[in-house]
Computed example of a mutant assay.
Amino acid sequence: MEKGNSSTVTEFILAGLTEKPELQLPLFLLFLGIYVFTVVGNLGMIILIGLSSPLHTPMYYLLSSLSFIDLSYSTVITPKMLGSFVTEKNIISYPECMIQLYFFLVFVISECHMLAAMAYDRYVAICSPLLYHVTMSAQVCCCMVAGVYSMGLVGATAHTVCMLRLIAFNIFLPTLTILSSYIFIIASILRIRSAEGRSKAFSTCSSHISAVALFFGSLAFMYLQPSSVNSVHQGIVSSVFYTIVVPMLNPLIYSLRNKDVKTALKSSLITKIYC
C-alpha cells in the first residue's frame, strides 16, 4: 500500500498588526506603555484592596479577583506581541500556540463569569441589603470565585482540545445572569422614593456597568458579527481592544468612579508620607 502525503503543523507565522516597518517601533512603545499601565493598575488595585480594611467586603474581594484575571490574560498575550515588533521572523511553535490559547481562554472565560458574579453581588446589595452579609458571606464569595475559575478551566479545556466554538456560550450565559440581575436592580431602584437614594443606589453599579459594557461589547463585536460584514481590520481592532485595552481600563473605571477606592488610596498615601 502506498503511503499518502501527510504534513504536520509545527509552527505558525504571525502576521502582526502592521506590515509597515516605520510603525513597528511606535506600536511597540504604545503597547509597552499600555502593558506597564495594566500591570501597575491591576497590581495596585489588588494590593490596595488587600491592605485597606474598609475594602475587605465581598464587592472588593470580587474586584481584586477581576484585577488578577485582567492582569493574567493581558500577560498571556502582550509580551508575545511586544516581541513580534522587535524580531524579524515572527513565528510561534504549535505547542506554544496551544498553551497560549489555553491560558488565554481560561482567563477570558473566567472574566465573563466574574462579571456575572459581580452583577449578582450588586443585585443582592441593592435588592436585599439587610441580608447582604449573610448571602454574600466569605464562604459564598470563595465558592463563587472557585466556580468562576472552574468554568474558565473547563471551557478552555473543551475549546482547546476539541477546537469547538464555545465562545458564544460563554458570552450568553454570563450576559443572561447580568441582565437578570440588573432587571431586579432597576426595579428596586425605581421603588426608592427619594432621588438622592436612587442616585446613591445606581452609583454603586455604575463602575460595573461600564466594565461589562466594555468587555462584552468588544467580545460581541468580535465574535457575534455575521461573517459577511466582518473584516480582518475590524477583527484586529476588536481583539486588541478586549485583550489589551480593557485590562488597562478596568482599574481606572473602578478607581476614578468609586469613592471607597479613592478614599482608601488617599489614606494609604497619607500613611506612607507620615511613616
Rank of each mutant, 00 (worst) to 15 (best):
C162H: 11
C162L: 11
L131C: 13
V154H: 11
S150M: 14
H113P: 02
V145A: 03
R122E: 03
A168H: 14
Y149M: 07
A138G: 09
Y149K: 08
A125M: 05
C127S: 09
F169N: 09
M118L: 14
V161F: 07
L166E: 10
C127Y: 09
E111G: 05
Y149N: 02
L115M: 14
H113E: 08
A119C: 10
V140W: 01
C141L: 09
A116D: 04
G152E: 04
C162S: 14
H133I: 08
I126F: 10
E111S: 10
A117E: 00
V124R: 04
M136N: 06
Q139T: 15
C162V: 13
G147D: 04
P129N: 12
L153A: 05
V154G: 07
H133R: 15
V124Q: 02
D121I: 02
L115S: 03
A158C: 13
V148I: 10
H159M: 14
C112Q: 02
C143S: 05
I167T: 12
P129I: 10
H133F: 10
V161Y: 14
H133L: 11
G152K: 03
T157F: 15
E111H: 09
V148Q: 00
M136A: 13
A125F: 07
V134K: 09
V161H: 08
L164I: 15
Q139I: 07
F169E: 10
A146F: 15
R165D: 15
G155R: 00
C127A: 08
A156L: 04
I171C: 11
A168F: 07
M136S: 10
A117H: 01
M118Q: 02
V145L: 05
A158M: 14
A125H: 06
M118P: 01
G155T: 01
P129E: 15
A119I: 12
A116G: 06
A146V: 08
D121E: 15
L164C: 13
M136D: 06
V134D: 10
A138F: 14
A146Q: 07
Y120P: 01
T135I: 10
H159S: 14
D121R: 00
C143K: 08
V134M: 11
S150E: 06
G147Y: 01
M151K: 04
I167C: 05
M163I: 12
